[in-house]
Amino acid sequence: MTISETQSQTQNPLWKSTMKVVSVKNKDSFVDLELPTPEPTGQDVLIAVKAVSVNPVDFKVHSRTPGELSEPKILGWDGAGVVVKVGPDVTLFKEGDEVYWAGSIIRPGSNAEFQLVDQRIVALKPRSLNFAEAAALPLTAITAWEGIHDRLRIGEKEKGKTLLVIGGAGGVGSILIQIAKLAGLKVIATASRPETLAWVKEMGADVVIDHSKPLHEELAAIGIPEVDFIYNTVDTVRYWDTTVRVIKAQGSIVSINGTAERLPLGELMGKSVSFHWEMMFTRSSYQTQDILEQHHLLTRVAELIDTGVFKNTFTADLGPINAGNLKKAHTQLQSGRTIGKVVLSGW
């Protein structure tokens, strides 16, 4: 061990020269490995990862793995932990800070004991939550917040208008309902099982309709045949015809589910409807000028959690972060029946 490593270990009790990671092995499995701990440079903070959560992007990226990988590939885009070292250009954090973040899709992820993350997409975690609870929030909160405020641009004049949330009980839907309510919208969320219906109501939805039935019929039955805004968290193509049918003239749509199919956007022209993609990795992937907004919005979400305005969306902790538990988490999420967010914590 070098002198600098010895000094770092003395200064940072959490720091180690090597780290446990869960790497992709192939498109169906993971493997536990040990790798050198990276060093922070520039605006990066090195964080000791205490908990992670899983999201659909995890299993989507995993499923596209080509054969057996010869080099480690670390997934995971939701974490909570403790800053152990900072790069020379870091001004927002110091060693010992308890933080949460969603990371960058073009860098190694949070399924590792230590992760390098740009300080501008990190925030102090909610003080009222433990690490497992905090890890459930970042990616979904960013996705929902950006969709409402940066894509749909909901402001004062939109208060009282209607938002249809397709998929209200999932990770994004759960926090989206709360963000939309805070923005002053009337939220109509979809769910299909008694337990998801109850969850969506607990998150604050004004009305819940059944997405196992035709949505235009469900909306007509509650006296709201058309809505001002639609946020699709489930499947852009499957709900396209319904979306075109129930969106109001001059309304707006946001979707988080990409597709290789060509969307018939011309079907929206007659109503002058705007369509938006929301991809929470855009700012970090392209180093946009406003990348710091993700730090600010996560800071705001933490405040809203700590003051009791927002409810946490954590529902289950599947145990330590390892290959077996991560596979279990992916399988559970792929079932499409997960409520809220599933987390792994500890090593």
Rank of each mutant, 00 (worst) to 15 (best):
T2D: 12
E5A: 15
T10I: 14
P13T: 10
K16E: 09
T18C: 08
M19P: 04
F30S: 14
P38Q: 14
V45T: 06
A48R: 13
A48P: 03
A51R: 07
K60F: 09
H62E: 04
T65P: 07
E68Y: 03
E68R: 13
L69N: 13
L69Y: 08
L69H: 07
V86Y: 13
V99G: 05
Y100D: 02
S110F: 08
V117L: 13
D118H: 13
V122D: 00
V122M: 02
A123D: 02
A123N: 02
K125I: 00
S128Y: 08
L129D: 04
F131H: 11
A136S: 14
L137A: 10
A141C: 11
I142S: 09
W145I: 04
E146G: 10
I148L: 15
I148R: 02
G155D: 04
K159P: 00
G171V: 01
S174Y: 09
I175A: 08
I179T: 08
W199F: 07
V207E: 12
I209W: 05
S212P: 01
P214T: 13
E217L: 15
I222F: 12
P225Y: 10
D228Y: 09
I230N: 12
N232G: 08
V234R: 04
V234G: 06
T242H: 01
R245D: 15
V246Y: 07
A249R: 03
G251V: 04
I253G: 01
T259K: 04
L265H: 05
L265N: 03
G266C: 07
L268T: 05
S272F: 04
S272N: 13
F275E: 08
H276Q: 09
F281D: 01
Y286K: 11
L297K: 12
R300M: 05
A302Y: 12
T307H: 11
T307P: 03
F310Q: 02
N312V: 15
F314M: 04
T315F: 03
A316F: 07
D317A: 13
G319W: 03
I321S: 00
L326Y: 01
H330L: 12
L333I: 10
Q334G: 12
Q334A: 14
I339W: 01
S345R: 00
